[in-house]
Design a binder for these strands. Structure first.
Lengths: 181, 181
DNA sequence: TGGCCATGTCAACACTTGTTGGCCTACAGT
DNA sequence: ACTGTAGGCCAACAAGTGTTGACATGGCCA
């Protein structure tokens, strides 16, 4: 046998992530993904059951958030922006979720869940008034996702041209204010 | 004749805007739009040629920006946030663009164009250093579009729950800092 | 009344999609 | 050498898509 089953399964997953991230849920076809791997579409079905399950597998990932509250409060905004920048460019699954979450309700739900379980607790620990934590987390999400949207999806030229340091310098204080002040 | 041609054309356009805004480009089918109006899909083709042209017609609109520079600089951030909130909830075409711009390159291009021609000049007039205007406009766009994304598309609960006044109070200073400080 | 054109319907087309079941093929263990 | 089986291919299906052309119909003008 040329390849082990796990090999092709992983190859399919990688190709699926790329296609979902680039095209969104509907335009990313099983046939195209299979062609990328160089196999028959039927193999995708054999290994993942159907398109929804393939998508779920491609969109599944862990955020492995750093221990933000242990940082000096003054540094939290900058650290969070820097962390997310690295995440967007490393982990394709996040771009998958953003691209598909706009038209696919399951992906949108998953995105809500991630920001509730990941950003929520951080905000709850940092902010002065615990009752304002959800709103503060939402505000931070709006700025972070807005940056991702304009930089990686819509590709507004001036936003694409910014360096990591510039982005951190501009967004850091905003996130700081939303979460803490 | 029951209806004039302009009537049905307008009805199709309204239904198309709703479908495109709710489902995105690929999931919004000509057949569904026609069914909403209660006519045959062939009518849509007769009046708009093809799906792309229908989409172009549905996504075409004017921002009619207010005269922001004439405001007191301290008020610009608040005024701009308030203006955009009203726009998002009034003009369905903006939601069309945001929803489709994520997977449709033509819509993304149109969005880039809008923010270049509408936000760019405002930033150029307001900001202290003209050479930083594009970056500043991009930053403002990232926050404004991020708010629209989390509130109207992803529907993060705490963001949906915020009132207009709360949003203006939180985002106003951010936009102000991005554009002017 | 008769004809004409705008408004609309119907049925079908060519194509793409996800999905299925049967068939092949090469290697592992006996 | 023989066989079982894991890995893969092929052809086809039913459903849904944008799109097209032929056909109906009702109201206006002559």
């Amino acid at each position: 046998m040329r390849r082990t089953s796990e090999d092709t399964k992983a190859a399919i997953l990688a190709a699926a992530r790329e296609r979902f991230a680039a095209d969104g849920y509907e335009k990313a076809t099983i046939r195209a993904i299979a062609a990328d791997v160089g196999i028959d579409p039927a193999m995708v079905m054999r290994y993942f059951g159907n398109k929804e399950k393939l998508f779920a597998a491609a969109a599944h990932f862990d955020l492995h958030f750093p221990d933000l509250p242990s940082l000096a409060p003054e540094e939290v905004g900058h650290a969070m922006v820097r962390h997310f920048l690295a995440l967007w460019e490393t982990n394709e699954a996040l771009q998958v979720l953003l691209r598909t979450g706009v038209t696919n309700e399951a992906a949108a739900e998953r995105m809500r869940e991630i920001f509730a379980t990941q950003l929520g607790p951080v905000a709850a620990r940092l902010c002065p008034d615990p009752s304002s934590a959800p709103v503060r987390a939402g505000l931070a999400a709006s700025q972070i996702l807005g940056m991702a949207l304009t930089r990686y999806i819509l590709r507004l030229p001036p936003v694409v041209a910014m360096t990591h340091d510039e982005i951190v310098a501009w967004l850091g204080p905003t996130i700081h204010r939303y979460l803490i002040d």
